[in-house]
Amino acid sequence: MSDGREAVLARVRAALGSSPEAPEVPRAYREAGAFGAGGDCATVDLFCERVADYRATVRRVRGEELLGALVTACEQRQARRIAVPAGAPPWTVEGVDLVRDDPQLSARQLDELDGVLSGCALAIAETGTIVLDGAGASGRRALTLVPDYHLCVVRLNDIVPSVPDGVAALARVAAEGRPITLVSGPSATVDIELVRVEGVHGPRTLDVFVVEG
């Protein structure tokens, strides 16, 4: 409705008057880079501690231990059929049927799977956040949403210290128009009595595997 457009813009201009003052944004806060590049021991420790605070499970494994850890986790959850993104590395998990999202799985097909195994674009230590960017090992959005169990592989170099670091690193992804999802722990609600309980519509279980070396 083009008349709506002109009317709203005219009202905004009229409301602001002739020369509204636009302040500079003071940036005395800790900007991107204030903590170094990340991936160091302290950053990784912090990330693991913060993820665990959300009642997600964190396992720190060496590269060669990853597949074994995935097998154990799937056994514990009795997860037998697991989705993986089309752009994921050639993971194999013994005893588990990995269903590649290629061709795309329907939402109903995803709903029938036991879980999803993904990587991530990056992770933020300070807030224990995993960032998915809709490509590669992150996969498209529905993939890490519909199944009830999310196993997420985080590499040391993925972990940045702070939110400003994460937002800065994602600027390019946003400019390309790719969807971004920030995941901090499993699905949760505080809607009743402000008591946080894990598990509503998103994956109710989140297992994070931090791969060292």
């Binding site: 913060r50 605070d53 959300y54 933020i124 300070e126 807030t127 224990g128 956040t129 959005r141 939110v163 946003a174 969807p179 971004i180 999802t181 920030l182 995941v183 901090s184 722990g185 499993p186 699905s187 949760a188 998103g202």
Partner: peptide, 8 residues
């Protein structure tokens, strides 16, 4: 510290 999900 961060809400569970932020969609962009």
């Amino acid at each position: 510290r961060m809400n569970p999900y932020t969609s962009l």
